[in-house]
Design a protein around this nucleic acid. Structure first.
Length: 349
DNA sequence: AATTCGGGGTA
DNA sequence: TACCCAGAATT
């Protein structure tokens, strides 16, 4: 039995039953694939149901407003995925006559759809013979064949893509793609893989040469940097001030409280002495209202503190340059994790 | 070719 | 703590 036949056989008995595998609708498959980029199935599942319910068709998605889409995406991270989806949906309506593409080449034209996602959708929706290469495939192939080329180099990506294409099943490429990803997720796991249950272990180089913990090889990236955020929670008669982040930084376009970032950690006294604080709040005093929070992202550690204006200052006039939101409207805004978890804990009891 | 885009699970 | 997850876009 070939490696592909082996994996497919395993899959037919052990594969996961996932909702997006019950459809051939490229739109629904696309929804699932974007949601699952760099995201575990368990984490993405509730979001998939949420989006299918809110936007059953690509036309519904295209006509939605971006705020609503981002609000649904709230908490999932990598928010540019949601904005690219909106662009892609509109592109399908304008350039594809409202018919969601299902071929590899056409899918690649959609923003947010790269080689992996195009291969996935085209193979699942049309049974096109395009091999997916995701984290699972890198791991399974590098271990089975004992390939130590780093997977996060262009040489590695090229080598594994060629190998994956050579291995893909002729008759059922879609099922093969599902199978090898499930196999990587359930058996050939990153840590503590279930080699005793593995149907490929007899031919697996990593298993036979004790290289499981070595493969796949991945070059280390840059260390994380530290950032220090100070959020000023301004409330006036049951309404809160939130501002929208810009582009070009983490959490693009997401809402948060007015923010002052400092190069190092600071106490409230030092914050109040900053020109950028005084330009907005004058001599109003702030007090810390919550424990500092360490929020860890892939490439930065964010140390966040939350403050409020002291009571004498809390009756200051509304600032005409700010937007105020009552608790209902606050809930509708698309906020990043740091903010909505603060709100859930301290405002929306 | 390297970096950046989140958030959470696992050992 | 370090690594990983149905990766893609930007620099």
């Amino acid at each position: 039995m070939s490696i592909a036949e082996n994996i497919i056989h395993w899959y037919k008995n052990n594969g996961r039953d996932l909702p997006w595998r019950h459809t051939k609708d490229p739109y629904l498959i696309w929804l699932s694939e974007i949601i699952l980029q760099q995201t575990r199935v368990d984490q993405g599942m509730p979001y998939y149901y949420r989006f299918v319910d809110a936007y059953p068709t690509v036309n519904d998605f295209a006509q939605a407003d971006e705020e609503g889409i981002l609000r649904l995406w709230q908490g999932l991270g990598y928010y540019s995925r949601a904005r690219n989806m909106h662009k892609a949906a509109k592109l399908v309506m304008t350039d594809f006559g409202g018919i969601f593409p299902r071929s590899y080449t056409q899918l690649l034209k959609l923003p947010g759809v790269g080689e992996y996602t195009a291969a996935a959708i085209s193979s699942f929706a049309s049974n096109e013979k395009q091999a997916v290469v995701d984290g699972n495939v890198f791991r399974v192939l590098s271990r089975y064949f004992g390939i130590d080329t780093a997977i996060n180099t262009s040489a590695g990506k090229k080598q594994f893509a060629q190998l994956a294409s050579a291995l893909i099943c002729e008759n059922e490429p879609g099922m093969y793609n599902h199978a090898i990803m499930d196999f990587g997720a359930l058996i050939c796991k990153p840590k503590a893989p279930l080699c005793e249950q593995c149907v490929l272990r007899l031919g697996c180089v990593a298993y036979n040469q004790d290289l499981i913990s070595i493969l796949p090889v991945k070059l280390k990236g840059k260390a994380s940097r530290n950032r220090y955020f100070h959020y000023i929670v301004v409330e006036k008669a049951g309404e809160w001030v939130l501002t929208k982040r810009g582009e070009g930084d983490v959490w693009a376009n997401m809402y948060e409280f007015p923010l002052i970032e400092t190069p190092g950690d600071m106490e409230s006294e030092e914050i109040m002495a900053l020109p950028e604080y005084q330009a907005i709040f004058g001599k109003a005093k702030i007090i810390s209202i919550a424990e500092p929070i360490k929020h860890i992202l892939s490439h930065q550690n964010i140390y966040a503190r939350f403050y409020q204006l002291q009571e004498a200052a809390s009756v200051i006039e509304k600032n005409p340059h700010w937007n105020y939101y009552n608790s209902d409207n606050l809930d509708k805004l698309a906020k990043h994790k740091l903010i909505f978890s603060f709100i859930n804990k301290n405002i929306m009891y």
